[in-house]
């Protein structure tokens, strides 16, 4: 059964290594708070395919707050959508 990973901190080499070890095929990722900066480093056309082939969402409120826009095709949700994702997946793993 797949997990929802809630990523709340900007990427570091350590967090990318740990996420890579734990995130499984079919898992869903939501980037919140400073986690939305993953949009800039892990989801550009030249990014290594670590996470960008998975089902990923960025929290709209946190994107707007930081003035970060995302590329076409990347998905966003608001907090209600975040709740819905947490209900859909049987467990969550928080990363902070």
């Amino acid at each position: 059964m797949n997990s929802l990973h809630i990523i709340a901190k900007a990427p570091t080499s350590a967090s990318i290594a740990e996420l890579s070890a734990i995130v499984d095929e079919g898992d869903v990722l939501i980037f919140i708070e400073d986690g939305i900066y993953f949009a800039r480093t892990e989801f550009s056309p030249s990014s290594a395919p670590r996470f960008n082939h998975l089902e990923c969402y960025f929290l709209e409120e946190d994107l707007a707050a930081r003035g970060i826009d995302i590329l076409e095709g990347m998905q966003t949700v608001d907090t209600r959508g975040f709740v819905a994702l947490s209900a859909r997946l049987p467990r969550s793993v928080s990363w902070y």
Binding site: M1, N2, S3, I22, D24, R91, V93, S94, W95
Partner: peptide
Amino acid sequence: EDCALKQLIAESTYVIN
């Protein structure tokens, strides 16, 4: 290894990180 780790998580009810 990574694959066993992913399996442990997949079999957990709750994960506290």
